[in-house]
Amino acid sequence: MKQFTQHFSIFIPNHLTTTNNESPLKNSITEYLDKTDSQSSKGKYCFSVKRNGIRKDGKQAQRSPANNQKAALLRPNLHKKVNDPTVSFCFCEDRTREKIDDEILQAWARNNSRIF
């Protein structure tokens, strides 16, 4: 199943052309990505970014393709600023937890010495 979802995740567009009908399409893509990526947080409201841990083989873990695609779709400006594949985006289903890009970046800067 994992190979199946990884293979077909490459066919999901990295960006959408802005139209008046994009919200239902974004919702559908987000729901699909939530179902196919068991490692990524569910939801469409971004509230943080985090450095991924070290894998069992000792290498730095990378952002999943689904997390990357969801961030590029839902938060394109933040996605461009966080140009580090070892950092993942944290999403939730609770709209009240959503943060603006500056809040997320300021929290990252407070907690980390390495800036994007």
Rank of each mutant, 00 (worst) to 15 (best):
K2M: 14
K2A: 15
F4T: 15
F4Q: 04
F8S: 08
F8M: 13
S9K: 05
S9W: 05
F11N: 07
P13I: 14
P13T: 14
N14P: 01
H15V: 13
L16P: 01
T17A: 15
T18F: 14
T18P: 11
S23I: 15
K26R: 09
S28F: 13
T30K: 01
E31A: 11
D34I: 15
T36P: 05
T36R: 04
T36S: 15
S38N: 05
G43V: 06
K44G: 06
Y45H: 04
Y45N: 00
C46R: 00
C46S: 08
F47L: 10
F47D: 06
V49I: 12
K50W: 09
R51M: 12
R51L: 15
I54H: 07
I54D: 01
R55V: 04
R55K: 12
K56E: 01
K56T: 08
D57K: 05
D57E: 04
G58H: 13
A61N: 08
R63K: 11
R63A: 05
S64V: 13
A66F: 11
A72N: 03
A72D: 02
L73P: 00
P76A: 06
N77W: 08
K80S: 14
N83S: 15
D84S: 04
V87Q: 01
V87L: 10
S88F: 01
F89Y: 14
F89C: 10
C90H: 07
C90P: 03
C92H: 03
D94I: 05
D94N: 14
T96R: 13
R97G: 02
E98R: 01
E98P: 00
D101Q: 08
D101P: 07
I104L: 05
I104G: 00
L105I: 13
Q106K: 09
Q106R: 06
W108E: 03
R110I: 09
N111D: 09
S113W: 10
